[in-house]
Computed example of a mutant assay.
Amino acid sequence: MPELPEVETVRRGLTPVLEGATLSRVTVRRPDLRFPFPENFAQRLEGATVLRIDRRAKYLLLRLSTGETWITHLGMTGRFTLDGDPTGQFEDEVPTGGKHEHFVACADLGGRLTRLGYADARRFGFMGLIPTDEVEAHPWFNHLGPEPLGNQFSGAHLIEAFAGRKQNIKVSLLDQTIVAGLGNIYVCEALYRSGISPLTAAGKVTKPRLNRLATEVRHVLDDAIRAGGSTLKDFANVEGGQGYFQHSFDVYGREGQPCRTEACTGTIARIVQGGRSTFYCPRCQK
């Protein structure tokens, strides 16, 4: 499933083409993805101008001139694609996509037309239209904690959130009410960089370690975004390219391989926590 860096990569890829563009020729090719498309979805998007594209946790939020916000969650295999038309116009029909493409539209930015497609082989993604002034109160968002790259996220926040918490710190960091958007890959990497065992109860981690953890969470996410995210199986950016951060993993997916910490003789181990694989160095992460 795309995690925060992958969704942010998609947002940055869509922004130059869609912000300020007017949508037209919107076509929805099936009634649902994970959930049904909103009622009259195509008609409500037709003629709307995209004012801004934001990201909240693992959601994309396209703010529209109609007063609504178009919400998209990529699920496991959701993918936006862009196909520019160098002549500035599409003759006849908009070019067609593959069999798993369920949504298509044209975006007109100052006469430059771009075909926007959304494909989703497993259909675990979903889309919604919510009045913009009601987004924060919507059930998809009203429970979310601070953004890990935002000003509200810090060591102090983790110290307060984890006080007295007996659950292990790995699973605690995946709790979206504590930190919004963190996923399995980047939690493993941040804990390794911080020297914290994923088995430790969150409330037992010292304040200095939590301060360092907050810093390393930011660093690992920034590093991943600069690399275009991680492509393990399905993820691709809007141009169809892959992310490259998977080549920089210190622990994730490296079970049985040597620890990369200098002078460490440990071997990366894999355990299961909360139904998900955790990778760590038992020697470095005490």
Rank of each mutant, 00 (worst) to 15 (best):
E8D: 11
G13A: 12
G13P: 05
R25P: 00
R25G: 09
V26Y: 04
V28M: 05
V28T: 07
V28Q: 03
R30L: 08
R34C: 13
N40L: 15
A42Q: 03
R44T: 15
L45T: 10
G47T: 04
R52V: 08
I53K: 02
G75I: 00
R79D: 02
R79A: 15
F80S: 04
T81D: 09
L82D: 06
D85P: 05
T87H: 14
E91F: 13
E93D: 15
V94P: 08
P95R: 10
H100N: 12
V104D: 10
A105K: 01
G111H: 11
T114C: 13
A119Q: 03
F126C: 07
P131T: 13
E134W: 01
Q152E: 15
G155M: 11
G164M: 12
I169Q: 00
I169A: 00
S172I: 00
Q176V: 05
A180M: 11
N184C: 12
Y186T: 00
L191W: 03
R193L: 03
L199W: 02
T206S: 15
R212Q: 15
L213D: 00
A214V: 00
T215K: 12
I225V: 13
I225F: 06
G228Y: 14
G229M: 04
G229F: 04
L232Y: 08
A236T: 12
G243E: 05
H247A: 14
F249W: 06
Y252N: 02
R254G: 07
R254K: 14
C259R: 03
R260E: 02
R270G: 06
I271N: 06
Q273P: 00
S277Q: 05
R283D: 10
K286L: 12
